[in-house]
């Protein structure tokens, strides 16, 4: 197999806050291949978005800092790249779509200006009429009706779904190698959500870009992704291709998540299964396994030391001492 497009190795990110230092990411390693869709799942605060922001080097300064590891893209370590070279990668080779389309666009500028800005920056040899035409075509491509006139409208004149399409159009303008989508459909209603997901899939088939899709919605993952990385409290706890993950989840947390999905085939009024307890605070992490306080299978060794990622099968990795007895266990 060819070399992966993006390789994240042992990435660690810390936030310096009033309450002390919080290690939001600890030893994060994964890769993504050309044309592939990688899902990043986990509950709020587990580090999904921080992973995306670390790759893009968009962490809030000065409190958020990458303190270890590397992000390899085209044989370059993005964490060490000088600022001006990073500017050439952002929006050009790696683009990002954010969660909140309502606030992600600048309210005082017209849509057109916000599209054109990206092209002016990354395609200096294009003439202004080419730039305009490319922008209009891209708006049309993402399914915005009457794109020529939309160029002259302000963000507040568009609906949430339309704005997210504009955000996607901006991200796709320079035909990036990787699109990082940070919960792009969370703020939208379900029908719009389905349209946006379909749009992303179509565009991916057309131009073969890789997508890192961040979500807490396992349904979206199942629909869209080739491989999945499950995160918990700043660490990767399971990594597998989509079929292995849904058919034979190995980590008790993943199993708990899948069990918590309400099923249409279950008898009516079946109590919804939940994972008891709370995520540990990043300021006060347990020394052993980070899931120990909520795990039904905790043993002494889970409390004493933290398990490493262990290979279950080919590309299926899990961070649990007891995964062999638990994998695919009837749950």
């Amino acid at each position: 197999m060819s070399e992966p497009l993006l390789q994240v190795n042992h990435l660690a990110t810390e936030f310096t806050t009033e309450h002390g230092i919080a290690r939001a990411l600890d030893d994060i390693s994964f890769h993504i291949n050309k044309g592939e869709t990688l899902g990043l799942v986990g509950e709020s605060g587990c580090g999904k978005s921080v992973t995306a922001l670390s790759i893009m080097r968009l962490l809030p300064k000065p409190i958020g800092n990458i303190v270890g590891g590397e992000v390899l893209f085209n044989d370059q370590d993005l964490t060490q790249l000088p600022a001006d070279e990073m500017h050439n990668i952002r929006g050009n080779r790696i683009a990002m779509v954010f969660q909140e389309p309502m606030t992600a666009l600048n309210p005082v500028y017209k849509i057109g200006r916000q599209l054109i800005e990206t092209l002016v920056l990354h395609e200096p040899e294009m003439t202004s009429s080419e730039i305009h035409q490319t922008s209009v075509n891209m708006l049309k491509r993402v399914g915005i009706p009457d794109p020529e006139n939309r160029m002259y409208e302000y963000p507040h004149q568009l609906s949430g779904g339309m704005r997210q399409r504009v955000m996607i159009a901006i991200a796709l303008l320079c035909k990036p190698d990787i699109l990082i989508a940070d919960e792009p459909t969370t703020a939208l209603d379900v029908t719009i959500q389905a349209q946006i997901l379909q749009l992303l899939q179509e565009i991916q088939q057309e131009n073969g870009m890789a997508i890192i899709f961040i979500t807490h919605d396992l349904g979206v993952i199942a629909q869209l992704c080739d491989r999945v990385v499950v995160m918990y409290a700043g660490r990767i706890i399971e990594q597998a291709d989509i079929y292995a993950l849904f058919d034979a989840p190995s980590h008790p947390y993943t199993q708990g998540l899948l069990k918590a999905i309400p099923g249409i085939d279950k008898p009516a009024k079946t109590p919804l299964s939940t994972i008891t307890g709370m995520v540990p605070s990043l300021f006060n992490l347990p020394s052993g396994c980070r899931f120990q306080n909520r795990c039904p299978y905790t043993e002494n060794r889970c409390i004493d030391s933290s398990p490493e990622l262990d290979q279950v099968k080919n590309d299926h990795w899990v961070r649990c001492y007891r995964h062999k007895e638990l994998t695919g266990a009837k749950i």
């Binding site: 968009l58 809030p60 929006g91 050009n92 992600a104 666009l105 500028y109 920056l121 990354h122």
Partner: peptide, 27 residues
Amino acid sequence: LAAEYVRTAIAKGIPFNQAVKHHALRN
């Protein structure tokens, strides 16, 4: 400066100083 559209601007590849001047200042 903490608004999301400034982060969007930087994610487009605009250097921080210009994102401030062209996006945050006007608002």
